[in-house]
């Protein structure tokens, strides 16, 4: 019998994971290997270009997008533990190069094989048995990019259903933004905080012990606001929970 060759995956770490929370990267790595992939973390990566793109700096966006395409186009799949970076590569690079035929074609090819982590795992992990255990009530935050750009809504829930002991307490409002918005939270901190405040009230209403999600930016924003409100809710990226690595300090906890 011919053994099927494992797919070669280029893991896009995301600048926030690299800087803020490397454990998410290691969790993603373990999970993807568990899903039967051969995972490589290309050394040439830094960032997907969203800060430039969303600031209207389209010439720098192109320069960065070309670097990402160069670094990742030879893999079978590109996976990012982030809805917004995945959305950037999958939905926006093509637009960035709309006037540049050669690069647009390369962007299209890359887009077709780029997936958000939970999206890929839900398809490739064996969910007939528990992936791990996590004896907590959990609230899940759908990032706007995951939900609206990628239509990734069911996948993380499917994965959480395969975690022993995990009870999902859904938010009453899963559709409203948390107020992060990348550089928005730096340019308009007061508005960002006000939106986040409403969001974390919604999180607290669920009585969940843990808040999770697939986008570190949203989680960082909400973790800060939760702490500010004196909440005991702990915040982990979903990859950390799925990989059984959510036993240390959560985001914004003492000791991080």
């Amino acid at each position: 019998m011919i053994q099927k060759k494992p797919p070669k995956i280029g893991l896009f770490i995301t600048c926030m994971v690299d800087l803020m929370r490397p454990s998410v990267g290691f969790a993603a790595l373990r999970l993807l290997e568990r899903a039967g992939a051969q995972v490589v973390v290309p050394d040439q990566q830094t960032c997907c270009g969203q800060p430039a793109y969303n600031s209207g700096d389209f010439s720098n966006t192109k320069i960065i997008a070309r670097a990402v395409i160069n670094a990742f186009e030879d893999f079978d799949h590109v996976i990012a533990p982030s809805g917004s970076c995945t959305g950037m590569i999958r939905m926006h690079y093509v637009d960035v190069f709309k006037d540049d035929e050669a690069w647009r074609l390369r962007a299209e090819k890359l887009a077709a094989k780029t997936f958000e982590l939970t999206e890929y795992l839900a398809e490739h992990l064996d969910l007939s048995q528990n992936i791990t255990t996590f004896e907590h009530t959990v609230a899940y935050h759908d990032s706007c990019t995951s939900r609206r750009e990628l239509n990734v809504v069911d996948q993380p829930r499917k994965l959480m259903a395969a975690v022993g002991g995990l009870t999902l307490n859904e938010l009453s409002d899963t559709e409203t933004c948390c107020g992060f918005g990348g550089l928005f939270s730096i340019k308009f901190p007061d508005v960002s905080d006000a939106i986040a405040k409403t969001k974390i009230e919604c999180v607290q209403d669920t009585k969940a012990e843990v808040l999770t999600g697939a986008d570190l930016g949203c989680l960082v924003k909400q973790a800060g606001q939760l702490k500010k409100a004196g909440s005991k809710v702990r915040v982990f990226h979903i990859a950390e929970i799925l990989a059984g690595m959510a036993d240390g300090p959560g985001l914004a906890d003492e000791g991080t």
């Binding site: 800087l19 803020m20 490397p22 454990s23 901190p189 960082v220 800060g224 702490k227 914004a252």
Partner: peptide, 22 residues
Amino acid sequence: RPYDLPSPQGSTFMDRYKRGER
């Protein structure tokens, strides 16, 4: 400013990965 900027874990992912951590 712990509320605005939760602390990073420590060294970057890339540094730790290159040191052989998995």
